[in-house]
Amino acid sequence: MRYAEIVTAGVLALFSIYLMVKSTELPIGFVSGRGPGGGLWPFWLSGVMLVCCGFIAFNWWRKTSPPSQSDEPFLDGYGWRMVGLVGGGLVVFVALIDVISMYGAIAVFLLYYLKFLGRHSWALSLGLAVSVPLLFFFFFEGAMQITMPSGMPFTDPIFDILYEIIY
């Protein structure tokens, strides 16, 4: 954890410097007759962020913050596996939205999570993987009139049937 604390502070410091540089694309001082420039607000705030990173590093060196005193690893084997399985599942879920539609991706993600990570029965996993996207469809498209991504053209026949029900 101690190592992660200083690495994160370093990354945030670099990000702050990047933001400061990026802010200078607009004036960062007082422009006569027009008031403060558009870059002033983000530039100085990023500057404060950089100073805070300095303080975090100082506290790390003095070992005053809890993570800087901890000898535990940032994530153990279970933690890495969990982040990989759940986080990876989420990345695939979002990537699938443009392919098999929002509702198709929800169905696949639910089946993956409930059956393979949650180890629930096939009946429950399939039941929820089918009913939840359908419920979402009628709520968002029917009641709220919000159109969700419908994926690639091969999903059209299914959507045609569903749209016929609500319109």
Binding site: V86, L90, F93, V94, I97, D98, M102, I106, F109, L110, Y113, L114, L117, G118, R119, H120, L128, V132, F136, F140, M144, I146, T147, M148, P149
Partner: peptide, 27 residues
């Protein structure tokens, strides 16, 4: 059970997020 609630929250977050902004970049 948490193994049902957690994926529900994830799909609610993604679908709710899209409903609010209508942009995949935001997702």
């Amino acid at each position: 059970p948490f193994t049902i609630l957690a994926p529900m929250i994830f799909v609610l977050s993604v679908a709710g997020g899209y409903a609010a902004t209508r942009d995949m970049f935001d997702i």
